[in-house]
Design a binder for these strands. Structure first.
Lengths: 219, 219
DNA sequence: CTGGACAAATGAGATGATCTCAGCAACACT
DNA sequence: AGTGTTGCTGAGATCATCTCATTTGTCCAG
């Protein structure tokens, strides 16, 4: 009669179950408010079992986010390769980022507000993926310079920061569940400003702050 | 004989002591790693006394950050008023933001990584100050449009997001104690890209490389 | 000077979280 | 059946935040 007090599963299966449960609970409550007890319950194990496979609660967060991040960018390089033209490629990069955020706001929020703050972030695979991602951006920009489409004196890191920072701020309300945005429209707007901002060609419309060139309408 | 087991201070003084201690401890360890017990000890009180004046640990964080934020932007409007010219004003806004971050990285980090994530953020005075700050930015941009210096079709919120997002990403490593930056140089670089990106005058340097539609916002 | 009201401050302990660990129970292989 | 291996348990150690009945200084009325 005694049906087993517990079921015995192969290691991988158990880990997968726990991670699946963790993903759901983190998604619903965020990292801090999620309790390991609840994750364990939903995974059908006892609390101690979670710690058998994951050193801390935080290790569980990292594992969950890393798996998801892996899936996410698997087809990315492939697609980028097909797209030609500096501005089209940039547009794809920006759109891809925006569209990821649109599809998985809660997981993105975990990365932005929890994972990225921690001291161990740089040892994380997520960090590595992000690096590769922003590295691609710099590559595209350098390519643009080589083609003579982007000014040689543009500080590329600043341009990159304006792209990704802009995307993040633009989607901020949405990620917190307080607004909406359109990935396509936002990508268009951002790349448009950026293109005009860094492309070669015509001279700058107006001189910078210094006193050198006279301003048109001083007051 | 017995000097009093504890000292009795006026309410305001005690609160000030506790907040000062909290500021130091938060600054050193961050919010999560700071314990109320340690804050209490440094303030020369017992743990329970902290809860006499602050409902939660989080209320203490908010109080500390709010006081600091208040001091910070007190002279801001005044200065901005004196500066003339759209681009100079933008440059001042951006520089001010950058320079604040440079001077108080740990407190900025508290805002970025702890306070801003919480659900009560929008009820905070910090939120209100930030709103006013970004509102000024939009004002300056609209002024630029009125003067004919900025294109009418520029989506101003996107421009604003690129500014503040760009600043935040640019200073990210520094805030985490892993790098440096120059407020003046960064402000120059950001405003330069932005100015070329949104100023009127010359037509856009080059059409997007793709086959079809130029991206222009019809709105 | 004295007694009583009041508020400041205490410290013990309730609550709830993460994390540990000795041992039990199911399975695989003799 | 016996035996080794290991998934899994459940009780509890430890350490946070937060509560509250009680103690103690201070002040003022009489």
């Amino acid at each position: 009669m005694t049906q087993p007090a517990y079921s015995r599963l192969p290691r991988e299966r158990r880990i997968a179950d726990i991670m699946a449960a963790a993903r759901v609970v983190f998604d619903e409550k965020g990292y801090a408010a999620a309790s390991v007890a609840e994750i364990a319950e939903r995974a059908g194990v006892v609390e101690g079992s979670v710690y058998r496979y994951f050193e801390h609660k935080r290790a569980l967060l990292i594992a969950v986010v890393e798996r998801w991040y892996g899936e996410l960018l698997s087809d990315f390089d492939e697609h980028l390769e097909v797209i030609t033209g500096t501005w089209n490629r940039l547009r794809y990069l920006v759109w891809k980022h925006l569209s990821t955020i649109e599809k998985q706001p809660m997981l993105v929020r975990l990365v932005f507000e929890e994972l990225r703050s921690g001291p161990e972030y740089r040892t994380t695979a997520v960090f590595e993926v992000n690096r590769r991602y922003t590295r691609r951006t710099i590559d595209v920009l350098e390519e643009g310079i080589a083609r003579g489409e982007i000014r040689r004196d543009v500080p590329l890191r600043v341009a990159r920061d304006m792209i990704f920072g802009g995307v993040e701020h633009h989607t901020w309300a949405f990620v917190r569940g307080e607004g909406t945005f359109s990935p396509v429209a936002a990508a268009d707007a951002i790349v448009d400003i950026l293109r005009r901002g860094i492309a070669t060609g015509i001279a700058a419309p107006e001189a910078p702050h210094g006193s050198k060139s006279p301003r048109r309408k001083p007051r």
